[in-house]
Write a protein that binds this DNA or RNA. Structure first.
Length: 111
DNA sequence: GCGTTGACTATTG
DNA sequence: TCAATAGCCAACG
């Protein structure tokens, strides 16, 4: 697709995140493995999602992307809990007492 | 082209 | 469960 001027690591990350179905969560490592081909590139995924508001994409469900520990990494100062967690709960994702999600239950299973 | 930074991951205590 | 350390990759100035 050459219609979009977006092609590269960032676009790859956005494409993978958009493929995450509602009620499911994916880890940075998983997205990095599919977007960049390397699980170690998880930092790049965080960078791409962090630059999302700057990219004005708006259609990327960044809240469905969490860390390998099953917890959100979005540090939202001033808020009791990250909006990411609220969105996930609204999608049907349940959090443990430690505020962690069971990746074995809600983990995204790419076909 | 180099050095710094970052919404990470895995390991160890 | 939490804290600290090392490793990895890409974008930014």
């Amino acid at each position: 697709m050459s219609a979009s001027a977006e092609d590269g690591t960032f676009a790859a990350v956005y494409a993978v995140v958009r493929r995450i179905p509602p009620g499911r969560v994916a880890t940075y490592g998983d997205v990095a493995a599919m977007a960049c081909g390397s699980r170690s590139a998880a930092r790049v995924v965080g960078w791409a999602l962090r630059a999302l508001p700057t990219r004005q994409d708006g259609d990327v469900p960044w809240w469905r992307v969490i860390n390998a520990q099953g917890k959100v990494s979005t540090g939202q100062p001033g808020e009791p809990m990250s909006e990411q967690r609220a969105r996930l709960e609204d999608e049907g994702v349940e959090f443990g007492v430690a505020g962690k999600v069971s990746l074995s239950r809600f983990g995204w299973d790419p076909e």
